[in-house]
Design a protein around this nucleic acid. Structure first.
Lengths: 251, 251
DNA sequence: ACTGTTAGCCTTATGCCGTAAAGAATTGTC
DNA sequence: GACAATTCTTTACGGCATAAGGCTAACAGT
């Protein structure tokens, strides 16, 4: 964890060969690998190779793969804005937050696989929380409720991101696009489970108004962007209801 | 996928030794392993061992580990109720759904690591969707909006479950309880980043009203159950707002 | 300039993983 | 009894994280 909070004190002259690498360079290379090939393909050997070293060379700078992932996590979070414009009210700010955070997770889908339970507690993780809480204070809710909103918002954004990320991952891993996959799957299903449609009328209904596919955007991604904006509206309405109730009778 | 939709046709007499195992037995054993030791510890060798065989013996019944996981996924989903009582209205039913589904994911945390993007399309997965859509039709919303609610609800429940599951996993893997970990982490943080509290006033505020720990329930789990119920209320309020708007001016 | 010490990097080895290949053993049909 | 199909085992390959040990470059003190 010390590595997280101040990576670069100069370090006086010491015997031994000059370092050919640095923690920063390793973290950057590891992020490139994870961005490009996914978390599952991230290995010490591959990161080392990208830097012209063996995998073992990294252990000079980083104690383990786990710590490396922690460092990647906090470094990537630095991309996110430190604050949001609150002039147009918390609803607008929260929308912006959600969209930017979604885009961020899609840029770095491996972030979704880093456990949240025992957070890394790096500076950028705190900054992220700080910016979100700043927006939510505009609602007038108390800390307990705000904590609930924080969890809800993260679950929502991460869930949406995970759907898209997993779909892209599957597409590049198998070489089969979503459209192709769903089509093949649908006919396979009809073959293997004939009475299918009748057994699940609600499922049939909920899929019933599917308009035709749109332009360049892959099928599922269009789907997700639709459900994302619908879900976000519902969330904001729910938060507004809570805010109103609280202003009537504060907690 | 054929394995998913009708596991047991009898099969006429054929030469060769009697099968000592069955797909069902393998799936059950695999679920036991995953429940007990987590998805990361699930290996073909370990499942085979539990059945008194080598890992390779499983390949007689199941073509690959991936397909085995698909089977585990759909089998586990069979635990969930096929329908919910709608007499008390959709709000009550949705609360029940959320709580039961949360409890389910906590019983089988490895389910959270099975990709949602290209679903298995087994019968129980359809049944789960069927039951949720049945509840949501009570809101009077159209298919597009209901799809948005489905995604939102799953993201919410899965997110909450993931937090608890990862925390439990970390506790048993490291032997360090949440309380211990957070305490140690807090003092480490104060040491490594001295001006910390001042740099993040919003974070400080949002953590400020922390009441003292409760009875048997671990710290983080109590936290999550609190944020879960707050989040659920907000969600239901948001859905209600959408339902009212739709009834005024149907989509 | 020489020496001792240290840090960077490599090679090798251990014990996991999924699964391909090949063979042994069992059980049915002719 | 011969043959074919099936279950299950052993062995092997290439990958993973990382422990252990060794070589070498570069400094500090002499």
């Amino acid at each position: 964890m010390a590595l997280l909070w101040r990576s670069g004190e100069p370090g006086e002259a010491r015997p031994g060969p000059k370092p050919g690498l640095s923690v920063d360079a390793i973290v950057d290379a590891a992020i490139e690998v994870a961005d490009g090939e996914g978390m599952a393909a991230l290995s010490m050997r591959k990161v080392g190779e990208r830097l012209g070293r063996t995998g073992m060379a990294l252990y000079t700078y980083v104690p383990s793969k786990g710590e490396l992932i922690d460092l990647m996590y906090d470094r990537a979070l630095a991309e996110l804005p430190a604050s949001y414009d609150l002039d147009a009210g918390w609803r607008a700010a929260l929308s912006a937050w959600a969209e930017q955070t979604l885009a961020f997770y899609l840029r770095h889908p491996w972030m979704l696989q880093v456990s949240q339970a025992r957070p890394v507690l790096g500076p950028n993780e705190f900054a992220l929380l700080e910016s979100l809480v700043s927006i939510l204070r505009g609602t007038g809710l108390g800390p307990r409720r705000v904590r609930g909103m924080v969890a809800l918002l993260f679950d929502f954004v991460r869930g949406a991101a995970a759907t898209v990320a997993e779909s892209r991952q599957a597409a590049t891993a198998t070489g089969v696009s979503d459209e192709e996959w769903w089509q093949a799957r649908a006919s396979l299903l009809e073959e293997v489970a004939p009475g299918f449609a009748g057994r699940f009328p609600q499922v049939r209904w909920v899929e019933s108004d599917d308009s035709e596919p749109v332009g360049d955007e892959p099928y599922l991604e269009h789907r997700v962007s639709e459900t994302f904006s619908i879900g976000l509206t519902v969330l904001l309405d729910g938060i507004e209801a809570a805010a109103k109730a609280a202003s009537r009778q504060p907690l």
